[in-house]
Design a protein around this nucleic acid. Sequence first.
DNA 1: CGCGGACATACGCGCATCCGCATATGGGCA
DNA 2: TGCCCATATGCGGATGCGCGTATGTCCGCG
Lengths: 119, 119
Amino acid sequence: MEKVTRDEVLRLHAQICKALADPSRLWIIVELRHRSRTVGDLSRAIGASQPMTSRHLAVLREKGIVQAERDGSFVRYSVADRRVLTAVDLLLDVLTTQLARQGARSTAARRLRPALRSA
Amino acid sequence: MEKVTRDEVLRLHAQICKALADPSRLWIIVELRHRSRTVGDLSRAIGASQPMTSRHLAVLREKGIVQAERDGSFVRYSVADRRVLTAVDLLLDVLTTQLARQGARSTAARRLRPALRSA
DNA sequence: CGCGGACATACGCGCATCCGCATATGGGCA
DNA sequence: TGCCCATATGCGGATGCGCGTATGTCCGCG
């Protein structure tokens, strides 16, 4: 039996979140939602250099979020576990709710004092 | 109407993910799942210093993941949007699946060459 | 067998973030 | 009002991450 400590699980859990915590990588995930794409496709889609795109894909791959598959001289990437898409959607919903609620107000304005004053 | 660019949404979306991308903060969220807690409670629960705990809470608060409420001289924190809990659970499921599948093998071993060789 | 295209990786820099430590703020109570 | 407890914030050193540039590796093809 494998013994995995709670700290280790938390660390890995956080690493998965960290892999998602980048605008380019989120965009890549969005691009991969419906079909697999090659590195060049993704690079053009998200407007990043080929090396940078490859690097982002490596991060997602190492965390098991995305998987690679050879297709001739290309490499096609696809989402490895679609539950990640659901999770990303949920977090986007959370953001959308926030934006709808606070309208034009600055997100950075969410400091403590005003929050507590209102109570 | 509010005009929010796609880049801006991606940036904010990534920031929410980034707020979750820390073992201590994930642990805090777990602690807040069923009931609200004071800073001192959380500090003791996760084994972090009071200033560090407060700082983590500030990060979660600024991203709207957690909310603060005065209770006497204490401040009670609770989860602001429970969809975050669902998202975190999903990502934990993803991790659990990976751990179950790969057993004792190192997570870092998920490099490209082996993956492609197997195809 | 050598060439070119597609992709991955190494290196270095600039910048943001994390953490411990010290200190400030703010509310309750004598 | 002044003290104490709970919490928040400022600061500095160390670490990590995103990114551009240059180079390595693999594949298919002539």
